[in-house]
């Protein structure tokens, strides 16, 4: 295979799989709670800053993972209690409130770290030869970890008892509550879990991004498009949505340029929102 073509293919796989991981937390929270957390991108951003923080203090890169989970988990706990729980019955206001939250987190991080770009060193340097093409090792690792994460979550969701309980709650919250499933705790844990996933993806992506306070904004919009295209609240939807959005963007970008890639994604998102708001795989 032509090494350039191989590189391009790997780029597409990388784009799609990392996008899926970023969207994962958002999809879990939306699918299970019906809450569109527009501050999701800011949790990703905070995760990335955790990676920066760890490196700035000469700690190993992997130390960022527990730190980010702790910080974002705690934030998620507070946010669920203060912001999300009172608004379960007002999904529209949740949208606004989490959007305000995103703004708040963005500005708060900016007040602490400034607007400048922080760079996080790649923990794994060098490249690996894949089918005749040299590909950066960290990107390759990230792709594999992303695929594993998504697959693992799907497997867990289908097989585990908690997964079954969550599905019961989704299908019928009143009934679930009446048979003794602790709906409130489950909702809280789900939200915290979603925030944790965002933080994790932030840590993972940090070495490949200029870390700055507005980093989350880019992700939340694209993540939202992924959910719209794939279908809100289904895992198949998540994967297909990431495939369509990430795939189209990187293929169009490779053939033409990034402007067209991004424009195409926007047009696809608008068409879906308008003509097929339930996406490719709507939850039945």
């Amino acid at each position: 295979m032509d090494p350039i073509l191989t590189t391009n293919v790997l780029n597409v796989v990388y784009e799609v799989s990392t996008l899926a991981v970023v969207v994962l937390g958002l999809a879990v929270v939306f699918g299970l709670l019906g809450v569109m957390n527009l501050a999701h991108g800011e949790f990703v951003m905070i995760g990335a800053y955790c990676a920066f923080f760890v490196q700035a203090h000469d700690l190993p890169f992997l130390a960022a993972v527990p730190l980010a989970l702790l910080v974002c988990g705690f934030l998620g706990l507070v946010v669920e209690r203060v912001l999300v729980r009172p608004l379960y019955a007002r999904p529209f206001d949740t949208l606004l409130a989490t959007w305000g939250l995103g703004m708040l987190l963005r500005e708060a991080v900016e007040a602490v770290y400034g607007r400048g770009f922080r760079s996080v060193a790649t923990p794994l340097t060098g490249s690996v030869e894949v089918l005749g093409a040299d590909y950066p090792a960290y990107r390759l690792l990230l792709t594999l970890v992303s695929v594993a994460l998504v697959a693992g979550l799907v497997w867990w969701f289908v097989r585990s008892a908690t997964g079954r309980r969550i599905r019961a709650v989704v299908n019928n919250p009143e009934l679930a509550a009446s048979v003794g499933i602790p709906v409130t705790a489950l909702a809280r844990n789900t939200f915290v879990f979603g925030c944790g996933l965002a933080a994790l993806s932030g840590v993972m992506l940090a070495p490949l991004l200029p870390v700055n306070p507005t980093l989350g904004l880019d992700f939340i919009l694209k993540s939202f498009f992924v959910l719209v295209v794939g279908g809100l609240g289904s895992l198949v939807g998540l994967i297909s949505g990431s495939g369509v959005i990430g795939g189209v963007e990187s293929v169009v970008s490779a053939v033409s340029d990034r402007t067209w890639g991004y424009t195409t994604v926007l047009v696809i998102a608008i068409l879906f929102l308008w003509l097929r708001p339930n996406g490719l795989f709507p939850r039945t």
């Binding site: 350039i4 784009e15 970008s253 402007t259």
Partner: peptide, 16 residues
């Protein structure tokens, strides 16, 4: 090539 200013740019494809 030119990439838009003010958009979230990635450079895998340009580097390729």
């Amino acid at each position: 090539e030119y990439v838009p200013l003010g958009a979230p740019n990635k450079f895998e494809d340009a580097v390729t």
